[in-house]
Design a protein around this nucleic acid. Structure first.
Lengths: 238, 238
DNA sequence: CGCAAAATTGATGGCTCTCAACCTCAGTGG
DNA sequence: CCACTGAGGTTGAGAGCCATCAATTTTGCG
């Protein structure tokens, strides 16, 4: 793997790190030391692809910094399918997703482990296997959240939901970073870029967010964002 | 678990069994004998719920006969989320999906195993762990297929896709069985029951399917069903 | 500045939802 | 055998939301 000499200046602010990433939950300090020896830090430049062939693809990965995008290949074109933010994990790939493309957005720092290494360390730290299963389940949950969004929500709810999720996943910073174009947001949400644009600006006009630049979103009213997302409990009167 | 005295007469035809379910792929005959001792066959009556609390829920399950439905609870109501057909598997649940409901459609025969049992047998048959991971990945792939359907397809493509998938998953029988109402098909596809009905009848009028009864679909032209699903490669001229 | 890519805004039309009426089928009881 | 009943299904008319097409503005970058 190669070294990217990027500094962090000008990038998005480092995410508020969770207590411990899900992959390493419940591990003791000596166990963590063992784990650290098996995992390696890979660096990627902007737009560089993460390998996906079974021989070189990371078996599991923990994103330390930067963003990753996953593009799916379907008949005709590629479409942005998912984003990964710092603190989140890459889980092992099924055969279908291997056809897609995984690439860096900005300078990316990724903590990875191959399958053999994982098997070895899992012998000593069985908890890791449980955590891995949990990760994949987490991805399933996430996929089902998108199913609800795509199946049942209106355009305004979809956009509010996306912003709300990204905001939360970035650690609820004052200013969230949208590392993709309106077209790509639309690909994820099942909308056209025009509709995304209109809904984002409607949120701005409503005072829920501020848009110093199209890719920078200051969240003024997180509560409103949540209730506009359609995920909130329906407000009952009295 | 209780015994359901249902006969199979009048039910849907037994699915064409695959060579071996994904959970048991690559196992030798003696390994299969070991596995058989750990798994138990559970029977459920129509509409009976499969337990979901961590103490009693099956860790993994293989559906031998009948259908299962998974309903998700979201603010307000329940919605049909997924169907499981014979030969398919239940994978361990993430925390979110435990809130949903899993129940039998018709008389169900389920081969299950709890977590401790699985851990024990996986010591002797390590391949099982790999297969389990593959199962969950398979579910992820399936979820992403639905994401494409919900995000990018028109109503007619959604209905054609659903019928096509169910047809294939039931083993491409002459007559496929739709064990749910139009309303529930609509919940899965993000459509209203009226739109589902219109599109199903349009397929009938086009001669792609025949509808002796609303819940029984004779597939006359599987090729047409596939090309109408929007998953086919775009036909190029010349 | 000058250019290209992205974003925004507006006008228009089509697809799907909504609402409403009617139909079909299975089950029940006379 | 038939009337009744209720759940599910079908069909139609109209409205609303979002895609499409097109023009303009903004942003990024040499």
């Amino acid at each position: 793997m190669q070294i990217a000499p990027h500094s962090h200046a000008g990038g998005h602010p480092p995410a508020t790190r969770r207590l411990r990433p899900a992959l390493f939950q419940g591990l003791t300090t000596p166990e963590m030391r063992l784990v650290r020896r098996v995992f390696t830090e890979d660096l990627y430049d902007d737009a560089e692809a993460v390998p996906r062939d079974p021989a070189r693809a990371p078996f599991v990965g923990l994103l330390l910094d930067g963003c990753l995008r996953e593009d799916a290949v379907l008949q005709g074109g590629e479409r942005l399918f998912a984003l990964t933010f710092p603190g989140e994990t890459l889980s092992p790939l099924g055969p279908r997703r291997r056809r897609g493309r995984l690439s860096a957005i900005g300078a990316v720092q990724l903590l990875t482990c191959d399958r053999d290494g994982f098997e070895r360390i899992a012998q000593e730290v069985p908890r890791l296997r449980l955590n891995l299963l949990g990760l994949v389940q987490e991805h399933l949950t996430e996929a089902q959240r998108w199913q609800v969004l795509l199946g049942r929500k209106s355009a305004s709810e979809r956009v509010a939901s996306m912003l709300n999720w990204f905001h939360a996943r970035q650690g609820a910073p004052a200013e969230l970073h949208l590392p993709v174009t309106r077209t790509e947001l639309g690909q994820m949400a099942g909308l056209t870029m025009e509709t995304v644009s209109r809904q984002v600006r409607a949120l701005e006009k409503a005072g829920v967010i501020d848009l110093p630049l199209p890719s920078r979103v200051r969240v003024i009213d997180p509560g409103a964002l949540h209730s506009l997302s359609g995920d909130a409990q329906p407000q009952r009167l009295h």
